[in-house]
Simulated assay, not measured.
Amino acid sequence: MTGGRPTRTVEEERTYRKQRLAASFRIFARLGFDEGAGGHITARDPGDPHQFWINPFTVPFARIRVSDLILVDADGHVLQGTGTVNPAGYAIHSAIHAARPDVVAAAHTHSVYGRAWAALGRQLDPLTQDACVFFEDHAVYEGFEGVVLDSVEGKRIAEVLGGGKAVVLRNHGLLTVGTTVQEAAWWFVTMDSCARVQLIAEAAGTPVPISSDIARATATVMGTPAMGRLNFRPMYADIVRAQPDLLD
């Protein structure tokens, strides 16, 4: 056992990550996080930490299968799979994977509430139990300069992310990371939801934030890797049962 999880061979771990990566795209599609050709989720390859799996450019999230995923190296070359890599996806994710050896997966899409919140250029406040997940564990990247196609900007985003689990990309959207695919995907789902809640609460009146001490204590329970994996589990089970072809 490793960290409470069963020990797998490299090939078994690769399959495990790819299955959850494909499922994450289907879940994101169900939640409306996909729009056009934008958005990407990556999973570091267990056999080579300098390579990662990513969705092929322009393939709809709702149609992605395990067999559609492509393997990319640190220079952006496609090593396995058919298709091309989203240039922005490579610029952002390659920098994050290089800067954070602990990160197995990263997720970024142009979700509606994520973009709305990003337009404010602020961190989320601890207004609910779920929002406490990100208390003192996310940042705001304020250097929007258009579509991220430059590796330099990708490195800047990684620097602002630091050791946190998420970053608000001002005027762009949300980005989350995790030590597993499950974590990165769940953090994105709940972060977008928290953005929605705060937007609604502020539109209705003046929200009452949770105190720093309580928010910090709540984060130690709700914001752990184990909790991220736990919350992803029912979503994974549901999407696999409803759309088993994603495992092809």
Rank of each mutant, 00 (worst) to 15 (best):
G47C: 02
V72I: 12
R14N: 06
A204E: 03
H40M: 08
H110L: 05
G121C: 03
P87A: 10
K18A: 12
A105W: 04
V148G: 04
Y113W: 15
Y90I: 06
V133K: 03
A201L: 13
P87I: 08
T82L: 12
E35G: 11
F52E: 03
G223R: 02
Q243C: 10
D68I: 01
L169R: 00
V59I: 13
A201D: 10
N171L: 03
S151Q: 14
M191K: 06
D130R: 01
R156M: 07
S193Y: 15
A37W: 00
A158Q: 07
V104K: 05
T109D: 09
R17I: 03
I210A: 09
A139D: 05
T218N: 15
A88P: 07
A99P: 08
R233H: 07
L230W: 12
R20F: 04
F52P: 01
A226D: 14
I214N: 04
G47R: 04
R115K: 15
G121Y: 08
T190V: 13
G81C: 01
K155M: 08
F57A: 04
H138W: 02
A23L: 04
K18R: 15
V197Y: 12
I27G: 01
E145I: 00
K18C: 13
R20W: 03
R8C: 08
L79D: 06
C132T: 05
T206E: 14
H77F: 06
L21T: 06
I96A: 07
V160R: 14
V72A: 05
S94Q: 10
D213I: 11
Q198M: 13
A201Y: 11
W117Y: 06
G143D: 09
Y16A: 04
V197E: 12
G76D: 05
L246W: 11
T2P: 06
M222V: 13
V167K: 00
G36S: 08
G114I: 09
D73I: 04
T2Q: 12
C132W: 00
A217W: 03
A237F: 09
R17S: 11
L127P: 04
I70S: 02
F52Y: 04
A74T: 02
V78F: 07
A118T: 03
T15R: 15
Q51V: 07
P101Q: 09
M235G: 00
G223M: 05
S24Y: 01
A116W: 03
N231A: 08
V59S: 06
L174P: 05
Y16I: 00
L199K: 06
A74R: 13
G81Y: 06
V140E: 01
C194A: 15
